[in-house]
Every structure is written in structure tokens, then in C-alpha cells.
Design a protein around this nucleic acid. Structure first.
Lengths: 186, 186
DNA sequence: CAAAATATGTCAACATGGCTGACATAAATA
DNA sequence: TATTTATGTCAGCCATGTTGACATATTTTG
């Protein structure tokens, strides 16, 4: 709120602060918020998750259904407990949307072979189709962005987003993604 | 569930798909979803917005309050209608959280000078302090990420996130951010 | 000036998707 | 056999979104 030596700003109307302008010497002591990234994350994510909404609405589904469908599609045969860990919600919350997905034939539950207490989750053909449809919508936006940026932007974005994940969680997330990738493409 | 010719994966446990491996020739025809970015956005954003939660809980506030407080702090004197546009919610929804923020002395409303129907929004000192506290929490995560990536990562992240915003909205968002920057920094 | 449009607020009712707590069942494990 | 585990379910609460209707003050317009 004071106002000294600045007013210079780059193309995005921000920065020139953390990259060098701002004090960054003291380790661990964040002085000025990185407002631009904070706000851009808000707007980017808002538009990103907004894409599938109209499609979901046609089935009377919401974002909660989308998340469940997505992870079951990506990790066929996963346990209910695994899904709870990923989504970070209670089994009661999950139960509600999962039941709807099962009742309407988007997700199937099969008894575990080794452990018959488990209800392993699979998408049906219908479920996979919907999951794919939604993912392709989001992919359009992502690839449009990559198109505007240079080559290597995919890798850069991946590295940035990966670094934004909790240190505690990062390994687990990467393992999950690697496994999903193996299963779906194997 | 079969398992053929792969298992090679890069450091992030994914990729080798869109960057080159996958078909990308047909313009406009997205064939394969960019699963990695889709999932990483989910996890990164989840952790990112999760940071402020415990602090907010001490005031019995939620993420809705956080969003309002943030934008009012960044755009002092903004109209209620502007805030509604940004947040994309109804005035009834906004009214609820805004009232709490006003009642508890985090936000003030002042009559517009030219147009006395307007209730221009300002954070109080208390509100600014809280907004800053929350932003610094998120900044820690962001700068930790920038630290893990090379120099120039701030700029790269900004460009990526900017490109992810709706074409229709991008200009408006950038204008808003530029204006906020001007106002807050003098 | 009177009429219409605008900015905001408010009441009431409802939906979604989180949550806690308690309890039930079947199957695995000690 | 006793306990633990994986899952499901009932009941109710909370936060935050929605729609629709209506009120009030103020500005703008015909």
C-alpha cells in the first residue's frame, strides 16, 4: 500500500517481482505473495473443470461423479478404499455417488478373487465412453494451450504441476499414474 | 490388463505419449486424452487450495469466504456485480458469505460516490492481514515448486495457466489482474 | 417529472456433496 | 474362536450452490 520504485509490469500484467525484482534472498521467508499464479490457477482450474459440466448435466451427474468415474476408468479393479484415499472423502460421501454410477450402469463392482470382502471397481463400456468423452473435452483445452506455447510445453506443464503437489503425496501420485498408464496401455 | 511392449516411462511416470509418441497430426482431432495433465491438475489444485483450510477453519470460514476475501483484497472498491461476475455465483450465494465477512469485520462496504446505489467493497486491515496470510501460505508452495524447477519457471507457469483460460475470458482476466496490480502497488 | 431500468438486498425453498456417529455383515486373520 | 478388516447403510447436520419472487433506493430515460 505504499508505493515506491515500480509500475513496470510484463505482458501478463504481473511478475518482475519474484523472478528477480523482489527480495528472494532470505530462505524460507516469503515476503510478497505470488499473486499472478494464485489467481491464474483459480481461473484456469475453474474453466478446466467447467468444460465437462454441461455433458454431466445431461446425466444428472456432478463433478463428484466425474471424479469417481475418472479414477475408476484409469484404475480398473481398484478397491473402494483406494478410491477413498485418492478423493479424500468419506465412504458415505463416496457411497452416494458411486451407487448412482452403479445403478445407471457406468460402473461395476466385482468381488475380489483373493479377498472376497473387496468390491473391485470397473467402468462398463458405457462408463468408459463417458469418461473418455469428458477427458477429450479437457484435452482440447490443454492441447490448445500447448499449441499457443512452444514445443516442450507439455513436459514443462507436467513438471510444474508435479512440483505443486504435496511432498508427501507426490510419490504416491506418480506411482498411481504410472500404474494406471501401464494397465490402460498394456 | 494385457501387457505388451512398454514399461518405459520418464521421470514423471507418464508422457512419451503426446510429446511425440502419440499421433498428433490431425488438427482439431484430439485422439488420446492427455491423462497426465488432467490428473496432475486435479492433485496440484487439491493441495493448493487445501493449504489455507486449517487457517480458515479457525474463523469458521470456508473456501467461499477465502475467494471473496481474496478478490476484494486484490480489487479494493470493486462493485458487488463485479465480484459476482468473477466468482460466477448468484448474489444469494455471495450474500451469505459476504455478510459474514462484513459482520466479522473483514470486509467493509461503502456507498459509491458517483452512483450511490453501489456498495463498493473494501477489506479492512484485519481482512487484508488474513488475505495476506493465506496468500503467503500458497506462495510457499508455489515458490517451492519454482525452486525445484529451473529459472524462468515463474514465467513459464504463468504462460501455461494463462493459455488454459477460456479464450473469451482471458483478456478480461488479464485486465483485471493488471488493474489489481496497479491499484495495490500504487 | 413520471416511468423504466439498475444495483443491491432479502426471504423461502431446494439440491449437491461434504461431514460425523452408530451400527451391520461378511470374510480374512490372529 | 475372537478379532480385525473391507464395505455398506441409516440418520442427520453443514456449507455452498441454485431458482423464484419481491423490496428499496437511485439513476437514467422518454
Amino acid at each position: 500500500m505504499a508505493d515506491i520504485n515500480n509500475s513496470a509490469k510484463n505482458s501478463a500484467g504481473q511478475a518482475a517481482l519474484s523472478p528477480d525484482g523482489g527480495a528472494e534472498g532470505a530462505p524460507g521467508a516469503a515476503k510478497a505473495p505470488v499473486w499472478d499464479i494464485i489467481e491464474l490457477l483459480f481461473f484456469a482450474y475453474r474453466d478446466f473443470v467447467g468444460d465437462p459440466d454441461e455433458v454431466l448435466a445431461k446425466y444428472a451427474f456432478g463433478r463428484a461423479h466425474h471424479r469417481v468415474l475418472h479414477f475408476v476408468n484409469r484404475n480398473p479393479g481398484m478397491k473402494v478404499a483406494d478410491l477413498l484415499d485418492i478423493l479424500n472423502i468419506t465412504k458415505q460421501s463416496l457411497g452416494r455417488v458411486l451407487k448412482q454410477l452403479v445403478d445407471q450402469g457406468f460402473v461395476e463392482q466385482k468381488e475380489g478373487e483373493q479377498d472376497r470382502r473387496q468390491r473391485l471397481l470397473y467402468v462398463t463400456a458405457k462408463g468408459e465412453a463417458l469418461s473418455l468423452k469428458l477427458a477429450l473435452l479437457q484435452t482440447e483445452r490443454i492441447e490448445r494451450a500447448f499449441g499457443q506455447l512452444g514445443p516442450g510445453s507439455h513436459d514443462t506443464a507436467r513438471r510444474f504441476l508435479t512440483a505443486m503437489i504435496d511432498d508427501d503425496n507426490r510419490e504416491g501420485v506418480l506411482r498411481l499414474m504410472a500404474r494406471a498408464d501401464r494397465v490402460k496401455r498394456g
